[in-house]
Every structure is written in structure tokens, then in C-alpha cells.
Amino acid sequence: MATYPRDLQYTREHEWARIEDDVIRVGITAYAVEQLGDVTLVDMPAPGEDVQAHERFGDIESVKTVSELFAPVSGEVVDVNTDLESSPELVNEGPYEDGWLVTIRPSDQAELDGLMDAAKYEEYLGTLDG
């Protein structure tokens, strides 16, 4: 069963964000992982690049499809999970742990208020199926 940790914030595009001091760590949710299936390639920006909230910052590919990755907040990419280059399956194995994608230094803290908590996100998921 897909789980949605309480300590994370979520987007409608199925990314999660974890606030860690002055950066936020970003990944995709268990729901997104289920929809994608086996992840085979993750295309991400380089550290130092700027990303815009709710705009595409990369792509994630599974055996079957390509999906766009959307930034939960605007800011500068600080760190990129380079382990995913050789082991993209980490996203399937632990989307909230070793399968994280990037960390971003937010340029506008207020954007964090626009994200959903776990309960809200689960409610939102309920409106998608069927």
C-alpha cells in the first residue's frame, strides 16, 4: 500500500518536499511511483540552476512512459541525487529515502504555504481515481 509520511508536504503533481533547515529535499510520491512503474532514467538540472515553482525541472522515465518533474517551490538547486544515474530503481525502492531527487534553496518561503499536508494530499488522490 502506498504511504504518505506525515512530515512531508505534497504537490498536485505528486512531488513531496521535506523542510531541512535552509533547503527542501524533493522527491516523487508513492502514488507517482505506482503510476510510473519501474523507473529507468531520471533527467535533472545541475546544482546551481534555478527552478520555478510548478514548472518542469526535469523528466523521469519508466520502462513504459516519460513524465515531467515539477518543482514544489522556486529556488536554486543545491544538490542532485547522483546515485540515480546508475541506480534509478532507488526511486521505486524508497521514494522518500534513497530515491530523493534534488534539494532546493527556496527563494520565497511563502510558496511553502501552498503545499498540501499528507491528509490533504490523500484527500486529493481520492478525487483522481475512478
Binding site: 512503474g37 519501474d38 519508466s62 520502462v63 513504459k64 521505486n92
Partner: peptide
């Protein structure tokens, strides 16, 4: 059915 346990 597109997949059961996973394509790989």
C-alpha cells in the same frame, strides 16, 4: 492488464 508486479 498492463502489469501485475512490474514490467521488469
Amino acid at each position: 492488464p498492463v502489469q501485475y508486479e512490474g514490467i521488469k
